[in-house]
Design a protein around this nucleic acid. Structure first.
Lengths: 354, 354
DNA sequence: TCTTGCACTTCATACGTATTAAGGATCCGG
DNA sequence: CCGGATCCTTAATACGTATGAAGTGCAAGA
């Protein structure tokens, strides 16, 4: 059998049956209009379609204005490297499953190119537009590209809260404000009053949200702004044993650490503590403001965890809503995080027999 | 600013500048033809394009040109469940990276649907055809669907050797024949002559290849067919301590175990050995014919491992070759596996002080 | 017989792009 | 003033599909 290079089209089916392309379209498009075609005709069309191996040309369909039944997933940073794997995996899983459950296929936009030219607007145009809409993911987003996406009015939902000046975006995000506030409250409930808060230096939305939660938390607990210490970590190596000792000498009894996708910050704290002979939680309590991969640490950190898989599913659902909404009004969803009581938090005087 | 519902097209740019759509196309398509346009005109077009936020319509472009710059990845079984994750991950990674490196995007066909209706031909047609070509993956393939794919002349490359009667397929596969043969040889080199070979009951190509390698291996070593025992595992639970004891009593000194994507078979052997107080490798040597996830076992098994990530990259490369080949001649590539000398193989008399 | 309605099918067109052959300038040599 | 060459631009068309409008044939009702 010689290879038939060209794929069969509706016209091929129509010609073979001596009917019109329009009728074929009515049948194979399946919709409600399909029932206005005579049973016999419909059967013949379907049979011929199967025989010729016909499949709808997605490009043509979406050109016409219809949908592609393709959803995109774009991440602003590589998802696959091993140290990030456990962090991103639940998102991937959730998006994949929900997309499938809704009858869509998933377009995974190339992430880690060898040349590092990671961009939505790589080859002249917006690659994402092949899909009907897109789920976006990642911490180190390109603001210019995001703004451009918004300007183009392309439907997308971000996982994680993101802002663009003068425009509301759609997102599904963990309630970092509330979770951080609750963490502070719970530390305060144990008697901690002098806190050190290690925040990330980069001023992203999640960082701002945690900062807001922190302020709420200390306000609720009646702790003054002057009793706490806020330290921006630009370089994890700057967290030294000496620094920790200084803090403890100043009366600090608990640390709040904002993690990233890798566990650099946590590793730094752990190392610094070991270096200075400081015990966790006996000498100082440590709570993480999130749930990083923790591949290097075997410790059971006190932390809070967002329901990642569920967030991903919600993102897909929101995106589909968005697509069906003629006006494309943005959707926003905050989800609660689950606190995990680990072994790194204790009362403030645990290590100091009084 | 009100949301502009319709995206700007080449026609919009042309109208604004009072030129024709064709000229705009020449400019924005960028290619060599772009230079036949007067500099001034080109600048004006690019400027207007930027101003209007024009982006090329991927659907229209691919409708015209035939190619989508999309490659598909379809797996015949769910990739994401945790116990399979480590097994499939290198494949995913390799396909993803190579696809990106070649300037394509990756279409990840939905795997685990809630309703379990996992099929290429789910909604009337071949879903894969949205992509220019497809990488296929998975052990439990649907033969009928595969045959149909072949009949439709859809370009694909399988990871793993697959056969369809009367037709050559394209694949990248580990050299299971050679690797199994070498495993047998190396056992024979240690003095093992009476071997038990636990093969999978399902008669898939990889199983047949290992069986062929096994026969080659014992022939090379001058071991008779009657000195070996071939056991088809239909149910891992059937591997009991008693069975192992029987085999040892018969003089068997080494086991070859064919693994699957999960580690059921290996777990079964380990359990049975423990049950009967049989030590590995003192009482019996065990070599695996492959490299399963081994999530439950901490033992360092003697085995061989295919270069999974590399295989995936090769598969993508072969697929692109296939697409560029007008005649679509099948490509086949066998890759060597790397033997891993673990701690589960020793000489035949290790446990019997003579 | 002439409507009227119904069931089914087709016509015609639009979607946005790439491309080819042809069109219109302008200029030069003869 | 013509042939021809060069340079730039455009008209026309095809890609495969979806869809509203229009058409066909037929049976039933007036």
């Amino acid at each position: 059998m010689a290879a038939q290079r060209r794929r069969p089209t509706q016209v091929d089916i129509a010609r073979r049956l001596g009917i019109s392309q329009a009728t074929v379209s009515l049948v194979v498009s399946g919709g409600p209009a399909s029932f206005q075609v005579a049973d016999e005709t419909r059967r013949a069309v379907l049979e011929a379609a199967a025989e010729l191996g016909y499949t709808v040309n997605a490009a043509a369909r979406s050109l016409k204005g219809g949908r592609n039944r393709l959803l995109g997933l774009y991440t602003f940073e590589p998802v696959f490297p091993v140290d990030r794997r456990d962090f991103y995996f639940p998102f991937l899983l959730g998006v994949e499953e929900e997309t499938a459950a809704c009858g869509y296929d998933l377009l995974l936009f190339s992430s880690a190119t060898a040349r590092g030219d990671r961009s939505i607007y790589a080859s002249g145009g917006n690659r994402l537009k092949v899909a009907d809409g897109c789920v976006l993911l990642g911490r180190h987003i390109d603001r210019a590209e995001l703004a451009e996406l918004v300007r183009e009015d392309f439907p997308f939902v971000f996982i994680g809260r993101r802002e663009v000046p003068g425009r509301e975006l759609s997102y599904v995000a963990p309630d970092n404000v509330g979770a951080t506030r609750d963490t502070v409250r719970s530390l305060a409930g144990l008697g901690h009053r002098q806190l050190a808060y290690l925040k990330m230096a980069e001023d992203q939305e999640p960082t701002r949200d945690r900062a807001a939660g922190f302020r709420q938390g200390i306000a609720d607990a009646g702790i003054g702004e002057d009793e706490v210490l806020v330290h921006a970590m630009d370089d994890p190596a700057a967290i030294t044993g000496g620094l920790l000792q200084e803090w403890l000498a100043d009366g600090i009894t608990a640390l709040l650490v904002e993690p990233s996708e890798d566990d650099a910050a946590i590793a730094a704290v752990e190392r610094a503590a070991a270096e200075a002979g400081i015990r966790i939680p006996e000498d100082v309590s440590v709570a993480l403001l999130g749930d990083p991969p923790l591949s290097e640490s075997t410790r059971d950190w006190t932390r809070y965890t967002p329901p990642r898989e569920q967030m991903a599913r919600e993102a897909v659902r929101l995106l589909l809503e968005l697509l069906d909404d003629e006006e494309g009004r943005p959707r926003q969803l905050l989800v609660d995080c689950r606190p995990i009581a680990g072994e790194t938090v204790a009362g403030p005087s645990a290590g100091r027999p009084s």
